[in-house]
Nucleic acid binder design. Structure first.
Lengths: 142, 142
DNA sequence: GGATGGCGGTTCGAATTTGAACAACCCCCT
DNA sequence: AGGGGGTTGTTCAAATTCGAACCGCCATCC
């Protein structure tokens, strides 16, 4: 049960810490940063709303809200899908890419400082394998 | 970075999964459950608001909100501190204890099923040690 | 004593999140 | 053709969260 308590506390504290760091550093919330990262990694820098929502944590309506905010801020753009009238792509704009590239280094180093550097290589390996498996199971089951 | 992605995903998915399980099973939110657990573990089943807020994740105002909700539901009670007029204790009520004892088994087994049983003993050890250390550092530094 | 700085908790407004309901649509089957 | 069943994204109200401002009070220093 020590692992459970540790996981719970670390999960909350790390998320909180990085939210803060990200907001102070670049004015992005963590969800918004995640959206930018995923779009930047996607082919053509665009993804269907549903794909974004699946990869992320929040509900569909939460995603709609965030994308609307980011569209107002000029970081992404909506584009309707030609083959399916219902479908909507979120596309990364030039400004969005720039914003991400500006925010990423600070965020990455914060992650490194808070998490990576604290752990031994063996612990990192165990966490990557173990928690990866945990995620996979919850995903396919949930 | 694999560890980072795994941690991030697991953190979100596990929290979400357990929130859900807890709400379906006993009508408690995760924050509320945590409050009950801490009070039940405290001497005399009571804690100062600030102590609760420190142990938990949310802000002071968030705690005020939750305790108010739980007081309406009869799970806790406020008691002013005799030696410091400003201070407020949150006290676990009999109903609160009963509610916790009713919710705990299901929650514990959900935790076990989602997390503990998926990991090897070595992984559990690494997570307990590593993430414990991560938490400790963030706490004393934050 | 009496100011002064800081703490403990609440209140307030704004931002975010959620689940359920909704409207429009695709796919498959007959 | 045409009708279910499931999907897609949005809208809505309600719940929760946060940060900043605030009030009342302790403690300490002059």
């Amino acid at each position: 049960m020590r692992a459970w308590r540790g996981f719970l506390a670390a999960s909350a504290l790390v998320n909180r810490h990085l939210d803060q760091q990200l907001k102070d550093d670049s004015g992005l919330s963590h969800p918004q940063y995640e959206i930018l990262v995923r779009l930047a990694a996607a082919p053509r820098n665009e993804l269907r709303m549903t794909e974004l929502a699946n990869g992320l944590i929040n509900s569909k309506s939460g995603l709609t809200y965030q994308v609307t905010q980011m569209e107002k801020a000029g970081l992404v753009q909506r584009r309707s899908c030609p083959s399916d009238v219902r479908g909507v792509f979120a596309v990364l704009t030039e400004a969005g890419r720039a914003r991400l590239e500006e925010a990423a280094p600070g965020h990455v180093s914060a992650v490194r400082e808070a998490l990576i550097d604290v752990l031994t290589p063996a612990q990192l390996e165990a966490i990557a394998d173990g928690l990866g498996e945990v995620s996979r199971r919850l995903r396919e089951q949930g």
